[in-house]
């Protein structure tokens, strides 16, 4: 009996070892002729936005012959910090980072800089200049203005509407809201009856929207700080039978693109996220080969309004070829 248990132990350990060995294929064992390692760190890939972002950067770096290591920080600054440590220890040539917080990420970027590794920030800024090699972000303000203008066109110049805000600690939440209001506040008869944060989350947006519907069954539109919240709001509106309410999102994620095709969501603003990664890789490559950094630290890329007319032209945050 003892013998049987003991052999079970060995078998399970061996099984584990073999399972792990299977991943050897993806090991970034540096080949002799490789120009070096680029570490790509983004939020969790459970959001297709970040998956597309990481994949595009990964593909661009590999195309130039770099080894890559793709990591996620799950929006946890501590985990991000550990990943940056790891990149430094591995002697990475560059870090491409979609960071875990405008303030909480400063120390990590500084640490990489002190270790001689340039960090190219994409999608989100940090509240400090002169540390990152570059900060490539989408023009959130311009995108929000586009979204709000379309919202007014669809809702009309009077009526009640709701705004769903992103996570308050995130700069993008404020910038987008600002863009929305710079347009919408021009129309005095458009009445904001509820403004709530749903923390970028689909389930939270669903709950918040359900509650708002109870108090304001006569709303005409919902303008949302991102697409996942727009999806949550749309689901709540559908469940309440309020299918005429105009929902406008922000991001251009594929599920919202599909909803636009179906007509359940009116419009969204596409962030050209698939351009961030390749541009950052290009800048990193220039730096690695020539030592030159981009002249301007901050680069903003304009967003694109997506409506039923042009929804077929884009897939996975990039134009259909």
């Amino acid at each position: 009996m003892f013998h049987k248990n003991w052999s079970k132990l060995i078998v399970t350990l061996l099984a584990l070892a073999t399972a792990l060995a299977g991943f050897n294929v993806s090991a970034p064992a540096l080949a002799q002729d490789s120009p070096g390692l680029i570490v790509i760190i983004t939020p969790s890939h459970d959001n297709p936005f970040f998956k597309a972002e990481a994949d595009s950067a990964d593909a661009a770096a590999k195309a130039l012959g770099y080894e890559t290591l793709v990591l996620v920080h799950d929006d946890d600054p501590n985990l991000q910090d550990q990943h940056v440590d790891q990149a430094i220890a591995l002697g990475a040539k560059a870090i491409i980072l979609d960071n875990a917080g405008a303030d909480a990420s400063i120390a990590a970027v500084r640490k990489a800089k002190d270790a001689g590794i340039p960090t190219f920030l994409i999608d989100r800024e940090i509240n400090e200049t002169g540390l990152a090699a570059s900060q490539i972000i989408s023009n959130n303000y311009q995108g929000a203005v586009l979204g709000a203008e379309e919202f007014v066109r669809l809702v009309g110049e009077e009526g009640k509407y709701v705004e769903l805000l992103g996570r308050e600690s995130d700069t993008n939440a404020h910038v987008r809201s600002q863009g929305y209001h710079d347009v919408l506040d021009e129309y005095p008869d458009l009445e904001l009856v509820a403004q709530q944060s749903a923390n970028w989350s689909q389930t939270e947006a669903f709950d918040v929207m359900e509650t708002i519907i109870q108090a304001h069954p006569d709303i005409l539109g919902v303008i949302s700080g991102n697409d996942t919240m727009a999806m949550g709001a749309m689901a709540a509106l559908q469940a309440a039978g309020m299918t005429d309410v105009v929902v406008v999102g922000f991001d251009g994620s594929q599920d919202v693109m599909d909803a636009i095709k179906e007509g359940t969501i009116a419009a969204t603003v596409l962030q050209p996220v698939a351009q961030f990664g390749p541009l950052a890789v290009e800048q990193a490559h220039t730096y690695i080969t020539t030592g030159e950094l981009p002249e301007e630290e901050k680069a903003s890329i304009d967003c694109i309004l997506i409506t039923p007319e042009n929804v077929e032209d884009y897939f996975n945050f990039a134009p259909v070829k």
């Binding site: 991943f23 050897n24 993806s26 970034p28 969790s44 290591l69 996620v72």
Partner: peptide, 8 residues
Amino acid sequence: MVIEGVSS
């Protein structure tokens, strides 16, 4: 696993 680049 991080060093090996195993998916999270």
